[in-house]
Design a protein around this nucleic acid. Sequence first.
DNA 1: TGACCAAACTTTGTCGACAATCCACTGCAC
DNA 2: GTGCAGTGGATTGTCGACAAAGTTTGGTCA
Lengths: 227, 227
Amino acid sequence: MHILPPQQGTLADLAAHRLAQSIVTGELAQGQKLNEAELAERFGMGRGPLREALRHLEGMRLVKRIPNVGVRVVVLDRKTLSDLYAVREALEGMACRIAATQMSDEDIAQLSALLDKHEAQIKKQGGKMYAQSEGDLDFHYQIARGSRNQMLMDLLGSEQYQLLRMCRHRTSRLTQRTLPALSQHRQIVDALAQRDGELAELLMRRHIQGAWRSISEMIDKEEKEAA
Amino acid sequence: MHILPPQQGTLADLAAHRLAQSIVTGELAQGQKLNEAELAERFGMGRGPLREALRHLEGMRLVKRIPNVGVRVVVLDRKTLSDLYAVREALEGMACRIAATQMSDEDIAQLSALLDKHEAQIKKQGGKMYAQSEGDLDFHYQIARGSRNQMLMDLLGSEQYQLLRMCRHRTSRLTQRTLPALSQHRQIVDALAQRDGELAELLMRRHIQGAWRSISEMIDKEEKEAA
DNA sequence: TGACCAAACTTTGTCGACAATCCACTGCAC
DNA sequence: GTGCAGTGGATTGTCGACAAAGTTTGGTCA
């Protein structure tokens, strides 16, 4: 999942991109209040464009805004993440189903090659899982693209995946689920290659349910540690 | 589906609401270019808040913006609507599945009562289908609420349903699908009452697929008429 | 006649300043 | 000591004006 090209057009778009990046990487902490004047100065622009950028982020659900009070970075609590994964399961499942009929043979071959690359990466550097996480997003995004459904691509790409990356940065340690995930990815590609949309959807939904269980357990551990 | 209360907070929010209303009702034609200065004057506000409102509408996919050129009302062509219905099928199906476990018995009873009301309306005034259309949205939105999933509710409520209402206003004539729709709604409520999430999801997805076929045929007719 | 270029106009993008609202602190009364 | 009202500071919301980019118009040349 390549971070969409930043430089094209208005200052507001640029600010939105930089802010999104800062939020996703955790540079701006969850729940932190964002000061318009301060951010505007940091980015070297007026408050007008910055406010537009904040509106954009609000639409992406990366920040929450209260009139006359200000905007705060969203907090990814258990409920929010649970909701997110349910939505993902629905959308990616559908994307997978459609992709089974819409992707070209070449697309599917490339997807398979992507998995080979991931496997090599995992075997070579078992420790550095972050790259695989980004690779995982790559895989999912390629399937969203394969659906040829612009709305699905927008929803999954511009919004959901940002939240996901944010979640990953928060719980980046203890991600040993890469190998089973890779195996599930292979199954999905197989289903796509067989043009079995129904199966592809089913597998993708199971895959995401599994990811949620994994994340959920991790949150449990965190909560226990905090206590 | 009550149109969310407009009056609370900033001018930008108010403008966004009024603009959304104008777009959905067709008062602003599809593809029409929106002039910032003109709209600002019409709403009696500066261009700043109006620009923020446009950003908001962009996030809702009601307008499309090109940097340094301007924003235009989105055009609901066949492909866009097809994409929309696929997304709806996924999201509402999931909402329905979750709602089967999350709605209270009373919630379901109210949903059933809502259908009774719709049935009475249809029998009384067979001609005025518009009310039923809005009622249909009411039904779907209640199920989204029943999922207790805030993200689903936001996605379905704030964005998707606006596009749907826009679509309805465009193809408002020739909507005789109210009776089969009602029957399907009853089936869905039955599944919810039995707490059968899997069945509820299946039925909802079929229901939306049927709606899409109906809309699709209508578009075909329109295109033939135009030719 | 048609295509290409240039200037004027229109519209968007941006900034700085002002008004309105909210928040925190202080001081007073109970 | 606790609760509440008033005040000061900080932050958001809004406006008008300027700069930059795009669009249209008109004219010239092949």
